[in-house]
Design a protein around this nucleic acid. Structure first.
Lengths: 126, 126
DNA sequence: CGGAATCCGTAATGATACTG
DNA sequence: CAGTATCATTACGGATTCCG
């Protein structure tokens, strides 16, 4: 049982960048936000397929935190079998341009150092 | 003894964003890069003070990886007591505008939700 | 289908010495 | 000062079971 209260209350940061990292940093949150931004709306199992290496436990945990922080919406369809859709909130969407810039930066890094990478480094699907 | 070879060789990513995360993601690299960008050049102990909660082991490990990935320069002064200065490479510097945008985003999040934060959340030093 | 709960093993990280 | 080495702790992954 995590705190229902605001997650970040009583935390302390030395600069706004540290706050940003607490909100959207870590191993999984950036890529979850990126794929949600890229696809718009995804069901739980679709999201899981996007992040092929994540475990269900971690995906659920990260989604709950992102939900608490008002970064993602969780829409439950009360039916059997259940259906749950995840999407970005407005706050979450405001992050998309920055995430895309980071993706472009990675592409630039790749092109600038292409001789160092294996030719199978990228299996792009976009 | 880590591999002297290129760290990212033989890895595989589904999109450039995943490559970006492998280069500069994780718990410590973003904030290390941010503070190096903010201050320009920092000695090992100065950097450690910036990231008050990092252990020496983690700081060293992250710096070595960033160095391998050509994100950070490590300049050793052969003297006693030793002196080592860290700074961003050109590739690293190209990231600064994006990191600053992320900082601004965090500031926006804070201002939009200021009633949810404790008044002691930020102890800004900038 | 979308989880939650559990048990267990391993990998990542932390705390605390200690050193050239 | 700038790290290493060692050991302890925690986080995380994997598999399984269960449920509305």
């Amino acid at each position: 049982m995590d705190n229902i209260d605001f997650r970040l209350k009583e935390k302390s940061y030395r600069c706004y960048f540290e706050l940003t990292l607490d909100l959207i940093g870590g191993k999984w949150k950036p890529i979850i936000l990126y794929y949600l931004g890229f696809h718009g709306t995804l069901r739980y199992a679709e999201l899981r397929r996007c992040l092929s290496k994540i475990t269900e436990r971690m995906l659920t945990k990260q989604l709950r935190e992102l939900e608490m922080d008002k970064m993602v919406n969780r829409k439950i369809y009360p039916q059997i079998p259940p259906k749950v859709e995840y999407s970005l909130t407005e706050k979450g969407k405001s992050l998309i341009p920055l995430l895309n810039q980071l993706k472009d930066w990675g592409e630039g890094y790749f092109n600038d150092n292409i001789e160092l990478f294996d030719h199978k480094t990228l299996e792009l699907e976009e």
